[in-house]
Amino acid sequence: MSRAALLVLADGRFPAGGHAHSGGAEAAVKAGRITGAESLESFCRGRLYTAGLVSSALATAAVLGVDPRQLDEAADARTPSPALRVAARKLGRQLLRAARATWPSPELDALAGQFPKGAHQPVVLGLTARAAGLEPVDAAYCAAYESVSGPASATVRLLSLDPFDATAVLARLAPELDRVATRAVEAARTAVEEGVDALPSASAPLLEIGAELHAAWPVRLFAS
């Protein structure tokens, strides 16, 4: 298989529905906590080391063959907000549909049968990377990058932020993405030996609170 499959999977145009979600940016913009490139960077950094690290480790563990059922339960335990659990399963379901068409595999078929309501997106992402013949570290990068690229592109729409500025934020975060992906791979390898409790559980109170505030709005631009 080809490393270039990573570019296909991580491409923002991969039809997995991610563009409809802001990764908490919409709630943070409304609360006045993201007002420009600088606060967007701080938001993305905080999300990267919390939700991003957790997603990255879950996806990596899935590539390494940890039981998807256990990973999905671990994801539930690390996602107290029901709005975020619903969003993660919805994204997982959409990704699985795209993945099965793109990289058909019995493992993805089995996952669909096992989780009719959708599995958490990082678990699906890991198994998709596996089906595409990618390495664990590839899934780690893909999940870590998605944790910041979503809020960055959403903020371009929410604040009319200059897309050049948003992209520069992502570029500045690159060394930290390396660090998070490395930590995620280490943690996932430990989880293979010791079980899913070894996965990181870094949390961000305002992402949890913001997700519930956001879900209660009557009108919103993004689904989460």
Binding site: S42, F43, C44, G46, Y49, T50, A202, A204, P205, L206
Partner: peptide, 13 residues
């Protein structure tokens, strides 16, 4: 880790 006091985590609280 970075961002702990930023808009995603504690934002000055």
């Amino acid at each position: 880790p970075g961002g702990w006091d930023g808009p995603a985590v504690l934002a000055g609280h």
